[in-house]
């Protein structure tokens, strides 16, 4: 009766070969937190399950020249406990700590969170403000896309049937080291986000030199709020500016109403979360400067 097949390849190339052969009939399995429920709900049918958990090449967190490299099989808990991410890229660890619960974090992977392409994908939000680059491979091609161009719609990405994510990379820049993430859920653990906001900020002489803002659960996909970003860029930080930026954020998000919250609340709360994240960063940046 079972319509499923199981393959546990040892190398990335093997995976790519199988993908090339099976195309949409293949389903990559890593942390598995979505795959099994989806099989149960009959949303995934007749698939070759490619278990990639044993592929060492796809694991790990490294510093590579001026970049940080995350293997797609990096688990959420590894982000929390890695010295590389937890010391300098707090925006990532903050999101990781709010992700699902400690058990799921033991198995759920960054790659899995990205390819699932839920509007509420918590790890996607800080990766968006880190301006992460997604490295994609297939047997026929290798390509790189910015994460902001990766998502297409709820559950949809630019990945072709024969492609997989082989790495995630972001720069070791000042702006990336100054980030903040906030999540609002219905409870403190095992919560699907009502809204999340991440901000990365670089201030020079009280002026915004660089800013990236991303939000989750407020649009069909995790999104960068580029409108608000360009509004803020090169401006001097003051309360009025922040208030105006809050309005921009609220205008730019495109939330829906669902059982967790209404569109109006999500719009309101995105502005608020932006304010809180921005103020945290701006306060510490300005503080550093005046000292």
């Amino acid at each position: 009766m079972s319509l499923f097949k199981y393959i546990s390849p040892k190398t990335k190339d093997e995976v790519l070969e199988i993908l090339q052969k099976e195309k949409s009939n293949a389903c990559i399995v890593a942390g598995c937190s979505n795959v099994l429920p989806n099989i149960r709900d009959k949303e995934i049918k007749a698939k070759v399950l490619i278990d990639i958990t044993n592929i060492e090449q796809l694991k790990g967190i490294y510093q590579k020249e001026d970049k940080i490299f995350l293997g797609p099989l990096t688990t959420i808990n590894e982000l929390i406990y890695s010295d590389i991410t937890s010391k300098e890229y707090k925006v990532l660890t903050q999101a990781a700590q709010e992700f699902a619960d400690p058990l799921v974090r033991n198995t759920a992977t960054i790659g899995g969170n990205l390819v699932t392409a839920s509007p509420a994908a918590d790890i996607a939000i800080p990766l968006l403000t880190l301006d992460a680059l997604i490295k994609i491979e297939s047997t026929r091609d290798k390509r790189e896309v910015k994460l902001k161009d990766f998502f297409v719609g709820p559950g949809e990405t630019i990945l072709q049937d024969d492609e997989m994510i082989v790495g995630i990379e972001f720069e070791q820049s000042d702006v990336n080291k100054n980030g903040y993430f906030i999540k609002i859920g219905q409870r403190k653990a095992m919560a699907i986000s009502i809204a999340t906001v991440a901000v990365n900020l670089e201030v020079r002489q009280n002026k915004i030199n660089q800013i990236r803002i991303a939000a989750g659960s407020v649009a069909p996909t995790p999104v960068r709020l580029t409108g608000a970003e360009s509004f803020l860029k090169n401006k001097e930080i003051n309360d009025k500016l922040v208030e105006e930026a809050i309005d921009r954020v609220r205008e730019e998000v495109k939330p829906i109403s669902d059982i967790r919250a209404s569109e109006e609340y999500r719009r309101y709360i995105s502005g608020l979360l932006f304010k809180r994240a921005f103020k945290k960063l701006a306060d510490s940046s300005i503080h550093q400067f005046t000292n």
Binding site: C32, N106, T107
Partner: peptide, 10 residues
């Protein structure tokens, strides 16, 4: 880990 969202073969 939560065994309901882990494949037996894993």
């Amino acid at each position: 880990v939560k065994s309901c969202i882990t494949l037996a073969l894993q």
